[in-house]
Design a protein around this nucleic acid. Structure first.
Length: 394
RNA sequence: GGCGCAUUCGUCUAGGGGUUAGGACGCCGGCCUCUCACGCCGGUAACAGGGGUUCGAAUCCCCUAUGCGCUACCA
């Protein structure tokens, strides 16, 4: 059994094609490319279905055998001339085609190589493939493949034709429009498990209401028969949310390891820092921005911080806070939290009015991890110096 | 052009004759709160259109529209 390399199996395909010729289900065709083009153009002009006109189908076997020796030729499938095929597909249930619509497909090309149709059926049978799961674009080829299985006297496998993934404009998802290469998603900080979770949901859903699945849960819950028939638009908005959900479910050390490749190599990231941002990132690559301020020295004020520092009460709050440092006996995050809250009461400030200037002074950001972690990471000196510096801002 | 497949909130979907058509993302509001998030609560929004069948259709049938696929000596 496989893997199979087509070029090494030319003999096999040829033999199988010959069997079909013996039984009259295939025939040699000597038509030139020019003639084929002519036929096609004529059919097009007359508004007919474009198909091989079966010119060589009625050649006598002896005649064909003789010409094969000296003339270039292909082998074509002798499709039934009338009737209707119906077949079952796990996803689409029942599908039907008229034989009349089908072409006498080339099985073996002039160069001796098989076409996909022959190779696919022969290989799958020899490899004892039980289920063929492929894209919807193969649905129109089903009758040919079935005819092949039947002609060889083989039991066809079970088929499932999956719906296509679509661009936001409903066109078939193309590799050119936006980058859909999985590597690019990994590089942008999507977890493989989240990716799988998202893609599985594009065209499939269990009866229940779950949207977040681990790989194991997914394997357990997935039923191919429940796959959707219509194509689904690949919209990464929900992917971001799913990724965030998976990130939050990660054990702390796994999360730390996962973001490491997305951070500046020289950063010495502590457990406390990592823990402080786990609920704040939807993409692993977000961690870089979230953590950056920890490693900026001296402090770099962002736009919001500048604004917060120039507010009316900022100076008052900060100088009071600075004064508080004179009496500190036992510096800690909780001490800091306590004194700020006290100042808040004294100034009748709370929420962002109180905290934005303080965060701006300490971290250069108005948002971010909890202040306790920040303050304890920086330590008394640095925090005090930064408050001092903020007082001189402007 | 011919043939095939498809069509439920903006998006992903649940739904198999009787439902106030459910969930999720997003968006909007609120709560929580040291900021931002997370979380929680609430709101917004859909059966493509038309004919049948039926006491009763999102569900079954037909037509139309739209989208997609195939129509190679490519896969």
């Amino acid at each position: 059994m496989g893997p199979y390399t087509q070029s090494e199996r030319l003999e096999t395909y040829r033999n199988h094609a010959d069997k079909l010729i013996e039984s009259g289900q295939a025939y040699h065709c000597f038509c030139t490319a020019e003639r084929l083009t002519q036929v096609r153009e004529r059919q097009q002009k007359m508004g007919l279905a474009v198909r091989y006109d079966r010119h060589c189908r009625n050649l006598t076997t002896e005649d064909a055998r003789e010409r094969v020796k000296s003339e270039p030729h292909v082998i074509r499938l002798a499709i039934p001339e009338s009737g209707r095929v119906t077949f079952k597909d796990i996803i689409r249930k029942k599908v039907a085609f008229d034989w009349q619509q089908l072409d006498d497909q080339v099985l073996i090309k002039t160069d001796g190589f098989p076409t996909y149709h022959l190779a696919n059926v022969v290989d799958d049978h020899l490899m004892e493939i039980s289920h063929v799961i492929r894209g919807e674009e193969w649905l129109p080829s089903m009758p040919k493949h079935l005819f092949l299985y039947e002609s060889f006297g083989w039991e066809p496998p079970t088929f499932a034709h999956l719906p296509l993934l679509l661009n936001p404009d409903r066109s078939k998802l193309s590799k050119r429009q936006g980058d859909v290469a999985v590597e690019s998603y990994r590089d942008r900080g999507y977890l493989p498990a989240a990716m799988l979770n998202f893609v599985a949901l594009l065209g499939w859903h269990e009866q229940g209401n779950r949207d977040i699945f681990t790989l194991t849960e997914l394997i357990d819950a997935f039923e191919i028969g429940r796959v959707q028939k219509g194509g689904a638009i690949f919209d990464a908005t929900k992917l971001n949310w799913i990724n965030g959900q998976h990130i939050r479910q990660l054990p702390p050390d796994e999360f730390a390891a996962a973001i490491r490749p997305h951070l500046a190599p020289e950063w010495d990231v502590t457990k406390a820092m990592v823990a402080a941002i786990q609920t704040k990132v939807n993409l692993l690559s977000d961690a870089q921005d979230q953590l950056a301020f920890f490693f900026e020295d001296p402090v770099v004020y962002d736009e919001d911080s500048r604004q917060a520092l120039s507010s009316a009460q900022a100076k008052g709050v900060l100088s009071t806070l600075l004064a508080g440092f004179d009496a500190v006996s036992d510096f800690s995050g909780d001490w800091f939290l306590g004194i700020v809250k006290q100042i808040g009461e004294d100034f009748s400030l709370k929420g962002r009015d109180l905290w934005h200037p303080i965060r701006a002074a300490v971290a250069g950001r108005v948002t971010g991890p909890d202040i306790v972690t920040i303050v304890e990471t920086f330590g008394l000196e640095k925090v005090r110096d930064r408050i001092q510096a903020a007082l001189n801002f402007e």
